[in-house]
Amino acid sequence: MSLSEQEVTQIAYLARLSLSETELKDNTKDLNAILGLAEQLGAIETDGIEPMAHPLHMTQRLRADVVTEEDHSELFQSIAPKIGNKHYLVPTVIE
């Protein structure tokens, strides 16, 4: 199986990346080479094998449902590209 340039454009869109023409050509070649490497996995018999999501098979720890975070919004927003009235500003979405 091989990815076309059109499919790579779609993948780039899913990842919110835009590719120049050269980048599209290069990435189509590279992504196909990497997926070619991944095809090797097809050779392994994995029926009945549990997928391993965590190296230590630990379960997610829970904590008491109490507020522990202090309000750092001013500090955190001090490094934002654009803010106004304590909000992060982006281009208008709905007029």
């Binding site: 990815l3 790579v8 993948i11 780039a12 899913l14 990842a15 990346l17 590719l19 980048e23 990435n27 590279d30 992504l31 990497i34 997926l35 991944a38 996995l41 097809g42 392994i44 994995t46 094998i49 549990e50 997928p51 391993m52 999501a53």
Partner: peptide, 28 residues
């Protein structure tokens, strides 16, 4: 960018089982 796209593809609908789930089993 390359790794982000590989990940986005391998996790996308229709390919998850063939790539991510398969890799997690091999990891085991």
């Amino acid at each position: 960018k390359r790794r982000i796209m590989i990940g986005a593809y391998a996790l996308s609908a229709g390919y998850y089982d063939a790539y991510y789930l398969k890799a997690q089993k091999t990891r085991h």
